[in-house]
């Protein structure tokens, strides 16, 4: 294992976020505040409790997941796409580093950034509602698993994308809708029967619910199911990545 190389990529990618530190911090804080004003205060005042939890607290895990999933994908996709776009990827390709090490560097940095941002959201939320986290260890485990898996997924998108439009496409038409419709802001029990069934076809629904369980100890699905979906998606991404690297897809011609 070539730790210096991995460290170099990791640090470089972290520095990219530091260069725009204000934006990196401000964006999640502002959007969290907006969510709390709109959903928590305006709508939440009409919905007093969901599964015995105040609506304001109910949406916190949803917000964190929404953020971790979308920022992981974006950071990782952008992180590998940009060097491809500028051509500076030549360095990574001519360096004594394996594909596996490259992935650890890029995916690790993207996951770290998105997890830090989700903590920022958690911190901001404390200003609006009070809540306890029932299973903090599980929360952390699920957060890290989600961050890594979605970063890996973003990495694949960044490798696959051959222009800026494609880079935006998958996050926009797949990730965002699935996350919004995956019960970030509502409990399935609020939906009519048909939509409940539809929601249960959405893998992200299980991940968000598992995460909510780590906060409140209750959820629409058992935690085991949630972990199962998470692991399945992780394995799928690993499989795709290893196929990509075996065939040298799109990078090495």
């Amino acid at each position: 294992m070539n730790f210096n190389s991995i460290k170099s990529i990791y640090k470089f990618e972290m520095a990219r976020a530091l260069r725009t530190i204000m934006q990196s911090i401000l964006a999640p804080v502002v959007s969290t505040c907006l969510y709390f004003i709109v959903f928590g205060a305006a709508i939440g005042s009409k919905i007093s409790e969901l599964d015995g939890i105040s609506y304001g607290a109910f949406i916190i895990p949803g917000l964190m997941m929404l953020s971790v999933m979308t920022t992981s994908v974006n950071y990782a996709a952008f992180g590998i796409y940009l060097p491809k776009y500028t051509g500076s990827i030549y360095e990574v390709m001519s360096a004594p580093i394996s594909a596996f090490e490259v992935i650890i560097g890029y995916v690790g940095a993207a996951a770290t950034k998105s997890i830090l941002i989700s903590f920022l959201i958690l911190l901001t939320a404390t200003a609006f509602v009070s809540f306890d986290i029932r299973h903090p260890i599980w929360m952390l485990v699920l957060l890290i698993m989600t961050g890594s898996t979605f970063s890996l997924f973003g990495f694949i998108i960044g490798l696959w994308a051959s222009n800026w439009e494609r880079l935006q496409l998958i996050p926009l038409i797949v990730i965002t809708p699935l996350v919004f419709l995956g019960g970030s802001f509502y409990s399935t029990s609020m939906l009519p029967g048909f939509w409940q069934t539809i929601t249960k076809l959405n893998p992200i629904f299980y991940i968000i619910n598992g995460f909510r369980w780590s906060f409140f100890g209750t959820s629409d699905v058992p935690i085991g199911v949630s972990i199962f979906f998470m692991a399945a998606f992780l394995l799928l991404c690993i499989a795709v990545v290893s196929i990509i690297f075996r065939t040298g897809y799109k990078i090495r011609n």
């Binding site: 070539n2 210096n4 190389s5 170099s8 990529i9 640090k11 470089f12 990574v92 360096a95 580093i97």
Partner: peptide
């Protein structure tokens, strides 16, 4: 300097 340091690290040198 950052880009030069990055390359050194990438090539496995401390």
């Amino acid at each position: 300097i950052e880009t030069v340091k990055f390359t050194r690290g990438l090539f496995g040198k401390s």
